[in-house]
Amino acid sequence: MSEPLVVMRDVNKHFGDLHVLQDINLEVDKGEVVILIGPSGSGKSTLCRTINRLETFESGSISIDGKELPEEGKELAALRADVGMVFQSFNLFAHKTILENVTLGPIKVRGTKKADAEKRARELLDRVGIGHQAEKYPAQLSGGQQQRVAIARSLAMDPKVMLFDEPTSALDPEMINEVLDVMVELAKSGMTMIVVTHEMGFARKAANRVVFLSDGQIVEQATPEEFFTNPTSDRAKDFLGKILTH
């Protein structure tokens, strides 16, 4: 039995007086797809962002593939290279073409040759359906297309685990599915994924486990089917009641 890929132990974080993460303990196995769900302000995005230290935390530890997160500097950069991250607002590099967005990491961080990086980038862009737009700039693409490029940019680093911080929340409704389709395919290919989302269709189709957070605490964990049909905690029932009744 090998060690889980991501291990969080007693992680605590405050934003001023707000105790935004309270003694978080979470383990994610290799190949597992975990959904973080919870009301606004529950700390789910913060939790996701602490895993690659875009947010600092005060106490506790987080390790990835057996290595504990370093504080800052080159070691942290090296570790971040192994952790893909997809943001709500895409964050493609605005001054670079789509192709350059995907090849920047491999060339600068992994030291891949430009020609090899471009070949791989085109394969990944084809995989997410943006292959024919490689020479365009991010602002020329729709939100859904930009988000698929962002996924390809992360994949180009061959990450051990991918974090998704509300990847479809900034998208127009008709573009949500094109992004979710890519994510479902990724989950099926065996990628370890931690996803902050309210997309229950995606959770049912692709997730192994749903983690419900409220007020900075993990309140409940279950399979998607169990969680959505038969939640045990009052807070989860209350939350699901609010998002399911309209």
């Binding site: 690659n52 875009l54 500097g73 080159k74 950069a77 090296a78 570790l79 971040r80 290279a81 192994d82 952790v83 893909g84 991250m85 943001f87 607002s89 895409f90 964050n91 493609l92 590099f93 605005a94 001054h95 920047l104 990491g105 600068k108 961080v109 962002a150 940019r153 992360s154 680093m157």
Partner: peptide, 27 residues
């Protein structure tokens, strides 16, 4: 430059110097 540009640069493993050179200073 939106904060997300620096976050994206760091999250693909660029160091502070590389983020500056490749992403932040050109913009």
């Amino acid at each position: 430059i939106p904060a997300g540009q620096a976050e994206a640069a760091r999250s693909i493993g660029l160091t502070f110097g590389q983020s500056m050179r490749e992403v932040l200073l050109p913009q």
